[in-house]
């Protein structure tokens, strides 16, 4: 008996192998922590640099030659209107596409092409969407370097990823709900409208919000269509314009800047004091992006429980 227990204790080669294996845990853990801590550290640096600049004035001032006076106001208006245009154009199209693929598309080559095409479109670099927007919206459609042109460009950019996320959400709905409705004599659309969509909506919303958070930080595509201009007014329609469609549309035709473009402009400014402005703008942008991510996570968790 005693002999047995001695034999089971690791010795020699086995002990060495076990030691290496146990040590490897800390190596892999270290690598994991490294990635996360680099980001935490950079976040800390940004807050330290930007906090001094962050104030109400920073949010309400126009850009200026003087770093302390320069603010984010037009960029925030620009981001707001741009996101509104992007949301209203991309989301209906994306959800419609996802419904078509999952529920209506004939299972033939056309559908395969559409699906492969979407996967590839999702991987097209944003700057290519930028030249597409520049050629089609800015030049060909004569929209100039306007909010509309920017919003449409971003919409085209996020449609593929929104479609893919929505498809995933629709596929999560148990087929028994669809079959149950169809067996009761519901039409295809009735089954989708009353049984599939209500249950897919949380997943669709999560995916959509994540796409929007991608669009909100997009810089290259907007710089391509010419969003890099010095703007000292509030882009987009004013409050009073809501009553007047012509004025509203005119507002959407204004040129614009957005928060990420402002970050770019301040980052590359040779005057070092503007770095604090860039950092402060990054804090504002990240608060927005994180709020969107949090919202998506909350929706996901909330509905998972039900």
């Amino acid at each position: 008996m005693a002999n047995q227990s001695i034999r089971l204790r690791a010795g020699g080669a086995v002990a060495r192998r076990q030691l290496v294996s146990r040590a490897s845990r800390y190596f892999f853990l270290g690598a994991t922590v490294l990635g996360v801590s680099i980001l935490l550290f950079l976040g800390y640096e940004t807050i330290v640099t930007g906090a001094s600049r962050l104030s109400l004035d920073f949010l309400t001032n126009y850009p200026s030659r003087f770093a302390e006076k320069a603010g984010l106001r037009p960029a925030m208006f620009g981001t707001f209107w741009l996101m509104l245009i992007t949301i209203f154009t991309s989301i209906p199209i994306a959800i419609g596409t996802a419904i078509w693929i999952e529920e209506f598309a004939p299972r033939n080559r056309l559908m395969t092409i559409v699906k492969i095409n979407l996967a590839n479109l999702a991987g097209v670099p944003s700057i290519i969407y930028g030249i597409l927007g520049l050629t089609i919206f800015v030049r060909f459609a004569g929209m100039d370097r306007s909010l509309l042109a920017g919003g449409f460009t971003l919409a085209l950019m996020i449609i593929p990823m929104t479609v893919i996320a929505s498809q995933e959400a629709i596929r999560q709905v148990p087929p028994s709900l669809r079959d149950g409705a169809l067996a009761l004599g519901a039409t295809r659309w009735q089954a989708v409208r009353y049984n599939v969509l209500p249950n897919a909506i949380p997943g669709i919303m999560t995916g959509t919000i994540l796409s929007i958070s991608r669009a909100i930080g997009e810089t290259a595509a907007l710089l391509m269509i010419g969003g890099f201009t010095f703007i000292r007014f509030d882009p987009g329609p004013n409050l009073v314009d809501f009553a007047d469609p012509a004025a509203f549309l005119a507002g959407l035709n204004e040129s614009f800047t957005v928060i990420p473009i402002q970050i770019y402009a301040w980052s590359i400014d040779s005057r070092r004091e503007f770095q604090a402005n860039a950092a402060a703008a990054i804090i504002v942008l990240m608060v927005g992006v994180m709020a969107l991510n949090l919202l998506a996570a909350v929706i996901r968790e909330r509905f998972r429980r039900n």
């Binding site: 994991t32 990635g35 996360v36 980001l39 950079l42 640096e45 940004t46 640099t49 994540l210 958070s213 991608r214 909100i216 930080g217 997009e218 810089t219 290259a220 990420p260 970050i263 770019y264 980052s267 590359i268 770095q275 860039a278 950092a279 990054i282 942008l285 990240m286 992006v289 994180m290 991510n293 996570a297």
Partner: peptide, 24 residues
């Protein structure tokens, strides 16, 4: 806990990374 944090990192706008590269 770690995986969602990791995936959230994918949502950081690249212009922010660009700022880090240049200024830090």
């Amino acid at each position: 806990v770690l995986k969602p944090i990791l995936e959230a990192l994918a949502g950081v706008p690249t212009v922010v990374y660009a700022y880090f590269a240049l200024t830090f």
